[in-house]
């Protein structure tokens, strides 16, 4: 009877851990990362590797040397932040911006709030928005570097969202939206293919890592709001399909807004959260000074999460119907 463990129930545990959940999200991003490396070549590979590398290193160093809590360090979570940061950047971004982005994401947005699970704002988006405001030129230059696969007919230039911002819906009327959804070189790394992102997201759904409510709510809200405006003035306001496939909406909705730490914990809270994001995205796209607003929308709604969590609770057993 010596050396036997005695502890209260339960005596077994699921194999899922924080690290394995984060790894699942990284796996889900694999199709998008592979495509971006194929089409943007070494520069994409460098951005992804630097992003992940810087973030892991920073989190380790801060946890160990500054916070003196080495157990706060979770390599797969830090790597995921770095990968998401890189996926939100144009392929031509210089390497040092990634370093600054990583410092803001991990150092400011995550660790200074207390590290894993404590941050209010999504670290990767905080990093990206900081860069976008500080280095607008580097973050909005959409040069397409030489990829491992040749023959892309896309040209460097303003994104479709910038075109729409300047010239209204009419200027992007002849865009092949289905092709944009399948393969769309010219934006951030992660925006290369909406299909690849959705494939990854379906993987997450199947593994029960996330629930579909937040992205669904974002998509529905964007579709509804843009339909109303588009119907009122089709010349000026872009339509629902355009707004669903263009820019970073799919990336943001499926992988950034669903971040556990910075999203509501209840299903209905998630629906409200998603609706807020969808609404803010459309307001920025139509009326804001930036062509794209997914990052801002997610950050703004991140702030409301504590309130949403207070308002929405689960239905307890034995309180409703008899």
């Amino acid at each position: 009877m010596e050396n036997k463990i005695v502890s209260p129930n339960p005596h077994i545990h699921t194999r899922t851990s924080t690290a394995s959940l984060m790894l699942d999200v990284i796996i889900a991003l694999a199709p998008s990362m592979a495509l971006s490396v194929l089409f943007y070549g070494w520069s994409a590979l460098m951005l992804l590797a630097l992003g992940a590398g810087f973030c892991v290193l920073l989190e380790w160093a801060i946890a160990k040397w500054m916070m003196r809590k080495p157990q706060l360090f979770c390599p797969s979570a830090a790597a995921l932040t770095g990968l998401l940061l890189a996926l939100n950047m144009p392929p031509s971004t210089p390497w040092w911006t990634v370093l600054i982005g990583a410092i803001v994401a991990i150092g400011v947005a995550k660790m200074s709030f207390g590290g894993m699970g404590q941050n209010v704002f999504n670290p990767a988006i905080t990093g990206r928005v900081f860069l976008l405001i500080s280095f607008p030129q580097q973050l909005t230059t959409w040069d397409i570097p030489k990829g491992f696969i040749g023959g892309i007919d896309a040209v460097s230039g303003p994104t479709v969202l910038s075109q729409a911002k300047l010239g209204g819906a009419a200027s992007v009327a002849d865009l092949d939206l289905f092709r944009t959804f399948l393969l769309n070189p010219g934006g951030s790394l992660g925006e290369i293919s909406g299909l690849a992102l959705l494939v990854g997201f379906v993987y997450l759904l199947c593994r029960k890592v996330v629930k579909p409510w937040i992205p669904l709510s974002i998509f529905v809200t964007v579709a509804v709001v843009s339909s109303i405006f588009h119907l009122c003035n089709p010349e000026l306001y872009t339509g629902p399909v355009f707004n669903l496939v263009a820019g970073g909406l799919i990336l943001g909705a499926c992988f950034m807004a669903t971040d556990y730490v910075t999203s509501p914990m209840s299903d209905w809270g998630g629906v409200l959260f998603g609706a807020g994001i969808g609404l803010i995205v459309m307001m920025i796209r139509y009326f804001g000074s930036y062509p794209e607003g997914v990052s801002f929308a997610i950050l703004l709604m991140n702030m409301t999460v504590p309130l949403i969590d207070r308002a929405f609770h689960r239905k307890k057993f034995g309180y409703g119907r008899a």
């Binding site: 463990i5 502890s7 005596h11 077994i12 545990h13 899922t16 851990s17 924080t18 959940l21 157990q71 706060l72 590290g115 894993m116 699970g117 404590q118 556990y260 730490v261 999203s263 914990m265 209840s266 689960r314």
Partner: peptide, 17 residues
């Protein structure tokens, strides 16, 4: 099968709920 892993930090995943 049975060992308890060291307590980590809540990531608000809501799996418990």
């Amino acid at each position: 099968t049975t060992k308890r892993h060291p307590e980590g930090y809540c990531i608000r995943c809501a799996h418990c709920a």
